[in-house]
């Protein structure tokens, strides 16, 4: 076996070298073949150029002390505002609360990815296993409903359910436990955030997987039944491989959003007693900036988030390419 793999890697390298050579040779014909498709890309490229790349020049205000009223208009103000380099960032970085917020952002986000992400897949698999079509559709619809309720409403609801006199605590007390102040306890708060966001978004997250499952060739299941594979084996050998590429892609995309730990959720649910565990970058900047309109600071923090997101996305994509030969580009 090891011999085999050894030989295989060798030939792999050879193949790659050959491929590279032939690539150069065929690059012109590839271009020729690609032209009609490249024409299709033009509207999309024009779109991102105007609505995404043009405003990106505004990122320079992250290195300025930007004053929107300086100069004749806000664009002029970008040129006239004084350059401060990385000061906007270092001013924040020296504050221990901000550094704590960065740590919290990572922890909360990692918990959400680690717990909510697999749960979305499991839930999708479970729904997919429901045989009755009506039950399946009903379940899907019901589970995607919470996504549509804003955090303001959801937060208030959970404060009632999990408040000191809420149902959860009534059960705990009835079972002989002590009343837990979930919303004021640094040990509980992150758990609470994960739980509520799971409750709200898991059903919604199943949609992509269910769509991918719908695309799996039914003949594969038939073949599996003929081979006397039971349902677990079918899930393992047909369904999961069938959605693997979607799972990998979703994970990579999720990693690319790691710095978004759920601003609107936390803003509604937290209070100062749980800042230690629940204050994230977004909420910290929000409080810090009340009444200040510090666009520069917001921009530099946004850039920091983007950089981390990009590193994780690139890293995730690289890993995925190494391990599964799949890539999002």
């Amino acid at each position: 076996m090891s011999e085999l793999t050894g030989r295989k890697t060798l030939s792999d390298q050879d193949l790659r070298r050959i491929a590279r050579l032939s690539q150069k040779r065929s690059s012109r014909s590839r271009l020729h073949r690609s032209l009609p498709l490249l024409a299709l890309l033009i509207p999309g490229l024009v779109f991102v150029a105007i609505f995404h790349y043009l405003p990106m020049f505004g990122l320079v205000i992250g290195f300025e002390k930007y004053d929107i009223f300086l100069g004749a208009n806000p664009i002029d103000a970008i040129f006239k505002s004084p350059w401060v380099g990385l000061k906007n960032w270092t001013d924040l970085w020296i504050k221990s609360k901000f550094r704590q917020a960065i740590i919290n952002t990572f922890i909360i986000s990692a918990l959400k990815v680690g717990i909510c992400f697999p749960l979305g897949i499991i839930l999708a698999l479970m729904i997919n296993e429901v045989r009755s079509n009506i039950a399946k559709k009903t379940l899907q619809t019901v589970m995607y409903l919470p996504h549509f309720i804003s955090w303001v409403v959801v937060g208030a609801l959970f404060m009632n359910i999990m408040g000191t006199t809420g149902i959860v605590n009534q059960v705990i007390v009835a079972l002989g436990g002590e009343t837990q102040k979930f919303f004021m306890d640094n040990r509980w708060f992150r758990f609470l955030l994960v739980l509520t966001s799971e409750w709200k978004e898991t059903g919604w997250n199943t949609i992509v997987y269910l769509a991918a499952m719908a695309g799996i060739d039914p003949e594969l299941y038939e073949a599996a039944t003929i081979d006397r594979a039971n349902r677990f084996q079918q899930i393992l050998h047909v369904t999961l491989p069938g959605i693997a590429s979607t799972v990998v892609m979703m994970l990579i995309l999720r990693l690319g959003g790691i710095m978004d730990a759920g601003f609107s959720q936390i803003l509604v649910m937290y209070n100062s007693t749980v800042y230690k565990s629940g204050d994230i970058i977004g909420t910290y900047i929000y409080r810090e900036g009340i009444g200040k309109f510090n666009w520069s600071q917001g921009t530099i923090v946004g850039m920091f988030n983007s950089l981390i997101n990009m590193l994780l996305l690139l890293g995730g994509n690289w890993l995925s390419r190494r391990l599964t030969d799949r890539s999002i580009w």
Partner: peptide, 13 residues
């Protein structure tokens, strides 16, 4: 405004 928030948050803890 920001300092009032800072104080209130601390007082609450």
């Amino acid at each position: 405004a920001a300092l009032t928030t800072l104080c209130n948050d601390y007082f609450m803890t």
